[in-house]
Computed example of a mutant assay.
Amino acid sequence: MGELRIHSVLVTGANRGIGLGLVQHFLGMPTPPKWVFAGCRDPKGQRAQELQKLASKHSNLVIIPLDVSNPASIKAAAAPVEKHLGGSGLTLLINNAGIVRSTELQEGTLEHMTQVYTTNTIGPLLMGQVFLPLLKKAAQGSPGSGLSCSKAAIVNMSSIAGSIVCPLEWDRMQIVSYCCSKAALNMLTKCQSLGYQEHGILCVALHPGWVDTDMGSSGGRKPPVTVDASVQGMLKVLSSLSEKDTGTFLDWEGKVVPW
């Protein structure tokens, strides 16, 4: 397993839960990234207070206003990222932002499905498009011909809920829109891996586990995996990835999740 050494990283949905945990761990690395970009919808709001505290202590943390459900917001976010990078590329894009709605099969509506798909699937698609030039620049500036997360990569935060082979406990929780959006995100990851491999960019979908966050505990039961354990596991997985792993669907322990 190689060491994860990255020049820059952008995490969406970074103000709480897994996103915040990722930011904290990147900042705490023995050799932290030169730039950690934390995207969130309301950087000055109540839900971003922990992020604000971190930014006051770490000069390499830049909070970026970013709503991944808004194409204009995504395009606007690229400008400050590019300015801070100062001619270098973006090493790692982590599409973490996501939403879940309790959507039973007979209650699904166009509005519900569209809202969840826009954030969970279309957002990562547009993020990849807008930040592709910076990812390509990172890949071009990295030595070697292989793929790795230390060179240039897109990480899409998926879920085992998107696995058609391993459906969730149907009798306990029906989140049809979320499951469908994550299954679509897995396919998007595969498409990105095929389309961006020629540019030297690795693409992977990760299942973080059933994590003890606001989203994870929304079903009424306490999840078994802590944010810290999930994030540590995922960073260990990212450090081990190579070209053979691009386009795959893995969990936070590095195990292959069936599509």
Rank of each mutant, 00 (worst) to 15 (best):
L85P: 00
D245P: 05
W210V: 00
I63D: 12
S148H: 03
A55Y: 13
G220R: 08
I64E: 08
T103I: 00
Q46F: 12
T12Y: 00
S218D: 02
L90S: 02
I18Q: 01
V155E: 07
H84F: 11
S150N: 00
T189G: 01
P143T: 01
R221N: 09
P33I: 06
L126S: 10
V204G: 10
V23Y: 01
V256P: 11
S242Y: 08
L54P: 11
G28V: 08
H58Q: 10
F37I: 01
S88K: 11
E50N: 06
H58I: 03
R172E: 13
S8I: 07
G45Q: 00
Y196K: 12
L235P: 02
L194I: 10
V130K: 00
S158T: 08
G17K: 05
W170G: 15
A14M: 05
L132Q: 15
P32C: 02
V256T: 15
K255V: 11
S8H: 05
I164S: 01
S193L: 04
L235C: 03
Q232L: 15
S142M: 00
W170Q: 15
G89N: 02
I99F: 00
E107V: 09
A77Q: 02
Q52F: 11
I122N: 03
A48Q: 06
E50Q: 12
A161R: 08
Y178Q: 05
L10C: 05
W259Q: 11
L126W: 12
A72P: 05
S218H: 09
S181A: 03
I160R: 15
L241S: 14
S242I: 09
G13E: 02
Y117S: 09
R172S: 12
V225W: 05
A97W: 07
L54W: 03
V81Q: 04
V231W: 04
M29E: 08
